[in-house]
Nucleic acid binder design. Structure first.
Lengths: 153, 153
DNA sequence: CGACATCTGTTGTCGAACAAAACAATTTGT
DNA sequence: ACAAATTGTTTTGTTCGACAACAGATGTCG
């Protein structure tokens, strides 16, 4: 061994062989999604907004009056998970549960005025966060990626 | 109303506007990953193998003697999550915990003989499952996707 | 050698995701 | 009109992953 051998500090990190995982789309998707999830959390956790909650906000904003289950179905979430999400967002004064006039079982979800300006700033922050990750892409690759991923839903 | 009017069966499903989500890579990645996750589960849940456990099996097979934390770090998992995974895989007689000879704190993980033939069949089944999803891609798109996603880890 | 920091595996706790069932209101069938 | 089936929401229980804290073992450095 060399002069400064026996490097106990040595991160003798053998590179780790990933085998078939290197060619599996499912695994790579999970890793990439984790990166985006962490980036989102770092940017928005101080506001108490997770990626899932952001999705609910956007869908409610774009489709006022939707029921909880309709939102859940649109986002491919579970209905029972929606109650906690709506509870939290209502507690933050961002959205409102109004009794539906046509069906007294269901609630119609609406954005509050405060929620509208809140999501405006939030969306901008999310956009800036994603822009940073988009720097890893060459021009056109984002659109390519989106068009391909759309086929898997 | 007309004769057969009042189509109560009518799924008056207004198409739902997704707003900015349609252009957000994070959201699309989550949806795509969910599809792959469900496909994997449908193919392998009867064997008691989840996508996460499959990753552990592959890494241990390709890198015999690795410690638990090394495997966790390679797969971007938490160390604490590894104990349950290794417990389960060891209970299935697929891998083995052997005390490390150099470091009495850590275990060295190895594949059992049965585990080796098990993962062989398992890998083939996973491959067939993914092949079905790859039918949605044009030739070359899979490689494009993999090379792009690799930049996000 | 001996104080001190670091690392490994583990446990416990918390919160999110999912399934099944309960409950309330509506719709359907006769 | 009235019983049965359906739908919207909530509750409950379970599972899973992330995070903090811990004891035992190892390494560092005076």
């Amino acid at each position: 061994m060399g002069v400064a051998a026996k490097k106990t500090i040595s991160p003798e990190e053998e590179p780790v062989n990933f085998g078939v995982l290197d060619h599996m789309l499912g695994y790579k998707l999970r890793r990439a999604q984790l990166t985006f999830f962490n980036s989102f959390s770092a940017a928005c956790s101080d506001l108490g907004i997770s990626p899932g909650l952001f999705g609910v906000l956007v869908v409610v904003k774009e489709n006022p009056g939707l029921t909880q289950t309709a939102v859940a179905k649109a986002l491919a979430n579970d209905r029972s998970a929606m109650v906690g999400a709506v509870d939290k967002l209502e507690q933050m004064k961002l959205i409102e549960r109004r009794p539906s006039k046509k069906d007294r079982r269901s609630y119609a979800l609406f954005m509050t005025r405060y929620g509208l300006e809140f999501i405006e700033k939030l969306t901008q922050r999310v956009r800036e966060q994603e822009e940073q990750l988009y720097k890893l892409l060459k021009p056109g690759e984002k659109e390519t990626l989106l068009s391909i991923l759309d086929r898997f839903d």
